[in-house]
C-alpha cells in the first residue's frame, strides 16, 4: 500500500476528505465541525485519549487560523480573554485528570460517549426546534453591523442582566461597557475548560453562548474573544496530552489541511445560499451524530460488531448530507449565519 511520511495514503485521504466536510460546516455555520472530530475518531476505533488529544490539537490549529482572520476586526477583549484563559486552564487540567481516572477504572469511553450523546442530541434538538419554529438559531445570529461598540441595554439577555446585578467584588469593566464580577467570569471559564479537557472540544460552542447569555458580552466581541481564548486553551490542552504521546499527527495534519480549505469554501458559500432553509439539516446532522455515538456504544456493550460500521456510516453520512444540502439549497441569501462566522 502506498505510504506518505510513513502513513497510508488512503488514511491520509480519508482524513483530508473528512476535514473538508468539517471545514465546510465550520465555514458555513461558524460552528459545528470540530466537535464531531472526537466522536468520529472514537467511532473509528481510536483510543479515547488519542481521539480527545487529536481533537484538541485540531481545534487549536483551526482557532489559530480563525483568530488570524479576526485580529484586524478589533473584536477581541484581551482582558476578558486572559481571565478566560486562567479559568479554562484550571478546568482543562481537572477535566484531564477526570478523564485519566475514568480510563483507569474503564469507564472513560462510556462516560465520554454518554456526554457526547447528550450534548450533540441536546444542541441538535434545540437548533432543529428553533429552525422549524422559524426562530433565529437561539438568538445568536450575528448582526455584523453592530461591530464592537457599546451594547444596547435592550440587547442584553435577562439572565446576563441578573448576573451583572450580582456585584461581588472585584468588578471588571469589559468592552461594550459591561461591568461584571470577576468570579462569574472565572466560573464560566472553568466550566467550559472542564468540558474542553474532558471531551477534547474547544468549548466554543458552549463558551460563546455563555459569554453572551450569562455575562452579556456583545456577540461580535464574544466570538473574537472566544477564538483568542481557544488558541490558548486548545494549545495548552493538546500540549498536556502531547506530553503523553496522545496527539496523532497522521490524523491532525490531513484533517487540518482539508478543513482549512473547506472552511474557505464554506465561508464563501454563505453568500450564495439561503442559510435559514438548511438550519434544520444542521440540527438533524447533530442528532445523527448523537445516534452514531449511541449505536457504537450499544454495539460494544451488546457485542454487535455491525453496529460499529453502521455508526461510522451514519456519522460520515450526516456530515455529507449537510455539506451537500449547503450546495443544493436555493439561492436567496438571508445574510446571517447560525452563529457568528469564525473561520
Amino acid at each position: 500500500m502506498m505510504e506518505l511520511f510513513g502513513v497510508s495514503v488512503a488514511l491520509l485521504a480519508l482524513f483530508a476528505g473528512f476535514g473538508v466536510l468539517i471545514g465546510l460546516l465550520f465555514g458555513f455555520f461558524g460552528m459545528g465541525g470540530s466537535f464531531l472530530v472526537t466522536p468520529a475518531l472514537m467511532v473509528m476505533g481510536y483510543k479515547t485519549d488519542v481521539a480527545v488529544a487529536s481533537g484538541l490539537a485540531f481545534v487549536f490549529a483551526t482557532s489559530v487560523i480563525a483568530t488570524l482572520k479576526h485580529r484586524d476586526l478589533g473584536q477581541v477583549d484581551y482582558k476578558l480573554g486572559v481571565l478566560m484563559i486562567a479559568g479554562t486552564t484550571a478546568g482543562i487540567e481537572v477535566g484531564k485528570i477526570g478523564l485519566h481516572y475514568l480510563q483507569d477504572i474503564g469507564l472513560a469511553d462510556t462516560v465520554v460517549s454518554v456526554i457526547y450523546v447528550l450534548l450533540l442530541g441536546g444542541i441538535g434538538v434545540f437548533i432543529t426546534y428553533t429552525a422549524t419554529k422559524g426562530g433565529d438559531g437561539g438568538g445568536l445570529s450575528p448582526d455584523h453591523d453592530e461591530a464592537d461598540g457599546e451594547i444596547n441595554a435592550d440587547d442584553i439577555p435577562d439572565i446576563a442582566k441578573k448576573i451583572q446585578s450580582y456585584r461581588v467584588p472585584p468588578m471588571m469593566k469589559l468592552r461594550g461597557g459591561i461591568r461584571v464580577s470577576l468570579w462569574m467570569i472565572l466560573l464560566v471559564a472553568f466550566a467550559t475548560g472542564l468540558l474542553s479537557g474532558f471531551l477534547g472540544v474547544g468549548g466554543g460552542f458552549i463558551r460563546m453562548p455563555a459569554l453572551f447569555y450569562l455575562i452579556g458580552v456583545p456577540v461580535p466581541i464574544a466570538v473574537g474573544t472566544d477564538l483568542f481564548e481557544i488558541v490558548f486553551s486548545g494549545g495548552i490542552g493538546s500540549f498536556l496530552y502531547a506530553m503523553d504521546g496522545a496527539v496523532n499527527l497522521s490524523i491532525v495534519v490531513p484533517l487540518l489541511a482539508g478543513s482549512a480549505g473547506g472552511a474557505r469554501i464554506g465561508a464563501a458559500a454563505t453568500s450564495l445560499v439561503d442559510e435559514d432553509e438548511i438550519k434544520v439539516y444542521f440540527g438533524v446532522m447533530l442528532l445523527l451524530g448523537a445516534i452514531a455515538v449511541a449505536l457504537r456504544k450499544i454495539g460494544t456493550f451488546m457485542d454487535i460488531p455491525v453496529l460499529q460500521t453502521v455508526s461510522l456510516v451514519v456519522i460520515l453520512g450526516a456530515a455529507t448530507l449537510v455539506a451537500g444540502a449547503s450546495w443544493s439549497a436555493p439561492s436567496g441569501r438571508s445574510g446571517r449565519s447560525l452563529t457568528p462566522q469564525r473561520a
Binding site: F60, T62, V64, I65, G235, M243, G245, L256, A260
Partner: peptide, 23 residues
C-alpha cells in the same frame, strides 16, 4: 514516539506551523 516536554513542543510546533502555512 515523541513524548515529554520536548516531544510535546515538537508535535504542537508542527501543528502550529501547518496552521500558519495553511492560513
Amino acid at each position: 514516539s515523541a513524548t515529554g516536554v520536548d516531544g510535546a513542543l515538537l508535535v504542537i510546533g508542527v501543528v502550529l506551523l501547518e496552521a500558519i502555512i495553511l492560513y
